[in-house]
Design a protein around this nucleic acid. Structure first.
Length: 554
RNA sequence: GCGCCCAUAGCUCAAUUGGAUAGAGCAUUUGACUACGAAUCAAAAGGUUAGAGGUUCAACUCCUCUUGGGCGCGCCA
């Protein structure tokens, strides 16, 4: 919170300065973290922006701002000086950092949380893989990113629901059902060919095997292949996700809006289409019902209902999003594989037709995982059954490594995943580097129990003994936890946290080499113990946001 | 053909969303365990940010073009 607090203070000072100068434009200044070679905590770029508007020299403005700032907020600023093209480099008083340390110790896992955000109801929809086969590694990336975003939003105080949209209706279900039936017949000894465009995977045979053993005396017509296949696949998906530390609040079945009818015999899809038609956002042409999505920036209009009377996928998806709003969500986050990008414009159009700003729907596209095995890329297809499942990868490299790996990169970047490499690196992995910090802290804290004379009450700690560069850097990084939260929310990407935690680990290990915690000086020992307690809190908070475990011993 | 995304060290990726000398891990080289955990630390080496223009006080970041890669363009889901 340090950075935001200082920025707020500066905002007021700069606003007054602008007023005095007769400048009415709004100023979007930033408070940066200066590069490593510069000895300052924050850098203000306002002078350069103002100089342009006021047509004066940046360094002149900078000096005037410094004079005012030092006078207005002496309790925050230790030192302020001009540098480079007109940056104002600020050094913050140590007391501010000590106060932040106390805040961390007091708030623990609530540090960085804003309870007032609770009135915003956010639905994060992710994975939503069709129940036609096991989750593959690509779904795993979506699962890791979506789950972490939900955790981050929840930590920020929002009222978050995690939902899986279950596409259990339509043609693909028919194909799945038939696939299971043919495998069943084959097992019963019938000589039938298995069609090339049916689901080839082994898991279909496993389903058929179960049905054979459970239904020895029953007639084939009595078996509901669709139900049985979906049941097995779904329970597999749920198990895989659970092993991946992903749990959903809600599983929303497509059948709810496509099959369930009200007292007038209408489904939600029927009603949504009628609503759009009545509103003039849909029209009939060539016997089909079209969505006028070009009105809101789509390339072309899209079919909602085919001339033969069947709805398209878009129709049920529109009804689904309408349903989301009806459930009171004020913000929607969707995670889609990048192959769905062509779909963004039309669903955003739908949102606007339903009367909402397109900004309430945030669509995060994540690029696919390029799977590499022994230098050869593996092409994945559910139909042909050629894929690496999420379970295989989790079993091989472990849940924590797998999640960390997926979350280490921005969703936008394509990700190359070499199984052999992931296994090889698992002993010198960045995830262990971060977890090791907590293990070290825990070890020291355990050891400290054998010592006497240590103060544990915060009010009796002399924090000003934490005055080395290493300690100051460490506290500063702890406080940056809040900045990382804000950045992750703004960009809707959890990868900032993996980067942040690696940096924190780096700074901690440097501190550890330089500053011994358990010494004969009980006052210093007490203060440093509080410092590493704070480090452990932040590491735990951060790893929890990524869904990664935090062992005390490794 | 049209549209979306990407291109950064030998490899995999960051860069606080337009800021100062572009940073990590892996791989390579060299040091450090007789006090809290060496899954660590210290140091070396590694770059015309694909290329060419442009905007800006300031460009890896924004705009245009070129090259190379991924993906999408159905009354499929």
């Amino acid at each position: 919170m340090i950075r935001q607090n200082i920025k707020d203070s500066l905002k007021a000072i700069i606003a007054k300065y602008l007023q005095d100068k007769g400048i009415t434009d709004r100023l979007n200044f930033t408070l940066e973290i200066p590069p490593g070679n510069i000895d300052a905590d924050f850098a203000l770029n306002a002078a350069m922006l103002i100089a342009k508007k006021a047509k004066t020299k940046p360094r002149t403005v900078a000096q005037e701002l410094i004079d005012i700032t030092v006078k207005e907020i002496p309790e925050l600023i230790e030192k302020a000086e001009i540098a480079g093209a007109g940056f104002i480099n600020l050094r913050i008083k140590n007391e501010i950092f000590y106060k932040e340390l106390e805040t961390i110790l007091r708030e623990k896992d609530k540090y960085g949380s804003f309870p007032e955000n609770n009135k915003e109801k956010i639905l994060v929809e992710f994975v939503s893989a069709n129940p036609t086969g096991p989750l593959h590694i690509g779904h795993g990336r979506g699962a890791a990113i979506g789950d972490s975003i939900a955790r981050i939003l929840k930590h920020l105080g929002y009222n978050v629901t995690k939902e899986y949209y279950l596409n259990d209706y339509g043609n693909q279900m028919l194909v799945l059902s038939k696939s299971a039936e043919i495998r069943f017949r084959q097992l019963k000894g019938e000589k039938i060919d298995f069609p090339a465009d049916y689901y080839q995977g082994r898991y279909v045979i496993d389903i058929a095997k179960r049905l054979v053993s459970e239904n020895r005396d029953r007639d084939i017509d009595e078996i509901n292949f669709k139900y049985e296949a979906v049941k097995d696949i779904l329970s597999g998906i749920k198990d895989n996700l659970k092993d991946f530390a992903v749990e959903f609040d809600d599983w929303f079945s497509e059948s709810k809006i496509t099959a369930n009818k009200d007292k007038n015999g209408k489904t939600e899809v029927d009603k949504t289409c009628e609503y759009l038609l009545a509103k003039g956002d849909a029209y009939i042409k060539g016997g089909a019902l079209w969505l006028a999505s070009t009105k809101f920036g789509d390339d072309k209009d899209r079919v909602l209902k085919r001339s033969d009377g069947r709805y398209t996928y878009l129709a049920s998806d529109t009804a689904y999003h309408k349903n989301k709003f009806e459930r009171g969500f004020t913000k929607l986050v969707n995670l889609w594989g990048a192959d769905h990008h062509g779909y963004v414009a039309r669903i955003k159009a739908c949102v606007q037709m339903l009367g909402f700003d397109k900004k309430v729907l945030d669509i995060i596209l994540y690029q696919f995982v390029l799977l590499v095995r022994n230098g050869q890329s593996v092409i994945m297809s559910t139909r042909t059954g050629e894929f690496i499942t999420l379970k295989e990868v989790v079993d091989e490299v472990g849940k924590d490594t797998c999640r960390f790996f997926f979350l280490l990169r921005a969703p936008d970047s394509q990700l190359e995943f070499d199984l052999e490499l992931a296994k090889k690196q698992s002993s010198e992995n960045p995830v262990f580097y971060v977890q090791y910090v907590n293990a070290r802290c825990s070890s020291i804290i355990r050891e400290s129990k054998n010592r006497s004379g240590i103060t544990t009450e915060i009010k009796n700690i002399n924090f000003s003994l934490l005055n080395t560069k290493e300690e100051r850097d460490l506290i500063k990084q702890l406080a940056a936890f809040c900045d990382t939260l804000a950045l992750s929310e703004k960009t809707m990407s959890p990868h900032h946290f993996t980067v942040y935690l690696i940096e924190l680990a780096d700074i901690f290990h440097k501190f550890y080499e330089k500053c011994r915690v358990l010494t004969d000086d009980t006052n210093l020992t007490s203060a440093r113990l509080k410092l590493i307690e704070s480090v452990a809190i932040i590491i735990k908070n951060g790893l929890n946001l990524l869904g990664i475990s935090v062992p005390d011993k490794m």
